[in-house]
């Protein structure tokens, strides 16, 4: 699980790259999610992330396993920040290395989408006029049809 971790301290994408770089890799695709100041015109002062840490760590590792089932030559590292984040701080960092570029792009995209489905981490928005724990961030399907599917119950 050392490639999958949650951190109260700032994270950098280089930490993830260092865990997946290897001679067999010809491509490393990276993704970082950062704290956004404006969402539909509303100003965020800072964010706060909480998690069910042991389960979230396991679910991140599970995403890595899913990626290796789909792209067997992939190596994955994912770090997610916890606690208070100022605007533009890194919330999540993902690095995927593969022999060729196509799989690395696809797998890094897969990782962030799965994080938003199954990893028990929550974001609290702090605005000038209040706070709110946010729910479903996929914004494409209703929560009822999302959730863990039958195959997720393992």
């Amino acid at each position: 699980m050392e490639n999958y971790w949650l951190s109260e301290d700032p994270i950098t994408i280089n930490e993830c790259i260092d865990k997946v770089i290897r001679p067999e890799a010809g491509a490393i695709s990276t993704f970082i999610g950062v704290a956004r100041e404006y969402t539909q015109g509303k100003r965020t002062l800072f964010l706060e992330y909480d998690a069910y840490v042991p389960m979230a760590t396991k679910q991140l590792a599970r995403i890595g396993e899913e990626i290796q089932e789909k792209w067997p030559d992939a190596r994955v590292a994912i770090a997610h920040r916890l606690g208070r984040l100022d605007i533009s701080e890194v919330a999540v960092a993902i690095a995927v290395s593969t022999p060729h570029r196509d799989a690395s792009f696809k797998a890094s995209r897969y990782a962030i989408e799965r994080i938003k489905e199954i990893v028990p981490i929550w974001k609290k928005e702090h605005w000038e006029d209040g706070t709110k724990w946010l729910g479903d961030q996929k914004e494409t399907v209703s929560y009822e049809s999302k959730g863990p599917k039958e195959e997720d119950l393992r």
């Binding site: 999610g33 992330y49 998690a51 069910y52 042991p54 389960m55 979230a56 396991k58 997610h80 919330a91 999540v92 962030i112 994080i115 938003k116 489905e117 199954i118 990893v119 028990p120 981490i121 929550w122 974001k123 724990w133 946010l134 729910g135 479903d136 961030q137 929560y143 999302k146 863990p148 997720d152 119950l153 393992r154």
Partner: peptide, 29 residues
């Protein structure tokens, strides 16, 4: 629903020592 850190369903029968977690819609990333 999670039971002992794994997603589970609402009909799961619990035994002493189990840890049940209610997981609101997640918003990581």
């Amino acid at each position: 629903i999670a039971v002992n850190e794994e997603y589970s369903n609402r009909n799961t029968v619990l035994t002493a020592g189990d840890v049940v977690a209610f997981i609101p819609p997640v918003s990581g990333g």
